[in-house]
Design a binder for these strands. Structure first.
Length: 481
RNA sequence: GCCUGGGUAGCUCAGUCGGUUAGAGCGCUGGAAUGUGGAUCCAGAGGUCAACAGUUCGAUCCUGUUCCCGGGUACCA
């Protein structure tokens, strides 16, 4: 550039997108590893699909303009395409596309970023990570029970003591709505939406929204569904049902519903699910039947589940799922019943962090090779190689000549939280020795020293000089503590 | 969309009842200091005080508009 000032490109991320720096990225990776372990234990295999799909794959059934939250793009061939908004739809496509290789029943897990073009909010992003399991090919609710068991097992694997899976059944809600004479689908949806807000806004506001509407805190009017008193009371009574255990809730729901075929079927399913949960050892404390659970997505056809953390309710749903027996029909004639669930990784991590159950990592590096004076680069690399061959994750400090002074190198280790320094100079190389320094001990040992010279004197605190043969054992010894 | 808070150094923020030279901490650069200087000390660089318009002798500060960011809420899937 000819001019002195060149125009800099602003370093920034897109609205609703985020970067994960090492501390967060390490924590995420660790949590993902544990979740993955649970998935494989329950017989799920990994599958990866592309971020981009043909637009019609992602659009609602019939191809109508249902999903305006899609990030739409165009392929070089000018085909309409879009970024996937979840992992479930690509899974349904997969089941239809590879009937030879992937035979039902099939269980797969998948994880990766998904994109939604709606307005970002706290804990809501335009790109976020989903971690999913889905099981295809079996209509029995035993599989749904296993899905709930996986949700619980994941929490156990993450050492989370307090969590709660709320379980309901789409068929129960349908039976209830039909009892109440609410047949119009758009009206049904409206009712579901209102019921879904129960935990958030409370029973009184729900009552108003089901009736004539209400005015919210900002003075904004919220239109109501316009149901009459009797129906509202009936709905509220039902969603308010609770019981000592799952079977008690089923019994109470049975009494509240008119004895129709739909109701019988729904109740039978819930009973079967309760049996499955007992067989799987899912405790009443961790998984509860809750008639008020509605869940937004309307592709669910049977059991639906949602996990919350009672100590961190404000973070909302950290996992959610349910049975969707009609999704695959979009891609093939033969129906394949499916069930599954999805972990909202970002939300889960935010909640766990809030509860102090996970902490940000610092670095994956266990040892830094520090050089003094004129040490041949080849010698430095050999030291690193020896450490790595012993499985010690190590970084070699290479930087501009100016920055190669000890202070800078140790400052680097300090900044990134690297616990051990392996120090070599010309003399050490010549004598076949290295200095191994415990940086935490070194720091602690000099915390109170103000005087410059005294500080310098104490420089070797936490440091031992050992033969090259003893280097690996010495470093490993320090890392074990 | 509506309500609400905000935009000052690379980052986090203070400040100016409207006054000529806008600060701190962290980070960055250099020095005290040639192999044990992670700390400390000293110095330095770095700003169209979001943009535009208005009021004023004078605006980073007051007014208006726009843009952007955060929080709440609604709507849509």
């Amino acid at each position: 550039m000819a001019g002195k000032k060149k125009a800099l490109v602003a370093a920034r991320t897109l609205k609703g997108f985020q970067d994960f720096l090492p501390g967060d990225a390490l924590m995420r990776a660790e949590v993902i590893r544990r979740i993955q372990g649970v998935f494989e234990l329950y017989g799920y295999s990994p599958v990866e699909t592309p971020a981009l799909e043909h637009l019609d794959v992602l659009l609602g059934a019939g191809g109508e303009e249902a999903n305006k939250e899609l990030f739409r793009l165009e392929s070089p061939e000018e085909e309409p395409i879009a970024l996937r908004f979840d992992l479930t739809v690509p899974f349904a496509r997969l089941m239809a596309q590879y009937p030879e290789q992937i035979k039902a029943p099939f269980r797969r897990y998948a994880m990766g970023p998904v994109w939604r073009a709606d307005k970002p909010g706290p804990g809501r992003f335009r790109q976020f990570t989903q971690v999913d399991i889905d099981a295809a090919g079996a209509a029995t609710v035993s599989v749904d029970g296993e899905v709930v068991a996986v949700m619980c097992a994941v929490m156990a694997a993450l050492d989370v003591p307090d969590y709660l899976v709320l379980i309901n059944n789409r068929k129960l809600i349908d039976a209830l709505l039909s009892d109440c004479g609410i047949d119009d689908p758009s009206r049904q949806k409206h009712v579901l939406r209102v019921i879904d807000k129960l935990a958030k806004v409370g029973l009184d506001n729900i009552r108003k929204e089901l009736g004539g509407g209400r005015i919210d805190d900002s003075g904004d009017p919220i239109p109501g569904v316009g149901l009459n008193e009797d129906v509202i009371e009936r709905l509220l009574t039902f969603i308010d049902i609770s019981g000592a255990d799952r079977r008690a809730v089923i019994a109470a729901m049975g009494e509240a519903l008119t004895d129709t075929k739909l109701a019988q079927e729904a109740l039978a399913e819930m009973t079967e699910l309760a049996e499955a949960l007992e067989a799987l050892g899912v405790s009443e404390e961790h998984a509860r039947f809750d008639p008020s659970l509605a869940r937004g997505l309307d592709y669910y056809t049977g059991p639906v589940f949602e996990m919350i953390l009672p100590q961190a309710r404000e973070f909302g749903t950290v996992m959610g799922g349910g049975r969707y027996n009609q999704l695959v029909e979009r891609f093939m004639k033969q129906p394949i019943p499916c069930t599954g669930m999805s972990v909202g990784l970002d939300r889960l991590l935010a909640a766990l962090r809030h509860l102090g159950l996970v902490e940000a990592g610092k670095t994956a590096v266990q040892a830094l090779v520090v050089t003094m004076g004129r040490v041949a680069k080849a010698d430095t690399l050999k030291v690193a190689r020896e450490l790595r061959e012993a499985g010690i994750r190590c970084e070699v400090f290479f930087a501009s000549k100016k920055k190669m002074q000890m202070g800078n190198q140790l400052s680097h280790a300090d900044h990134y939280g690297i616990p051990v320094a392996v120090i070599i100079g010309e003399d050490e190389i010549a004598q076949g020795v290295v200095s191994v320094k415990d940086l935490d001990a070194g720091k602690a040992g000099r915390e109170d020293i103000e005087d410059r010279d005294a500080y310098r004197e104490a420089g070797k605190t936490g440091q031992v000089t050992v033969s090259r043969e003893e280097m690996v054992a010495t470093v490993l010894g320090l890392l074990e503590r």
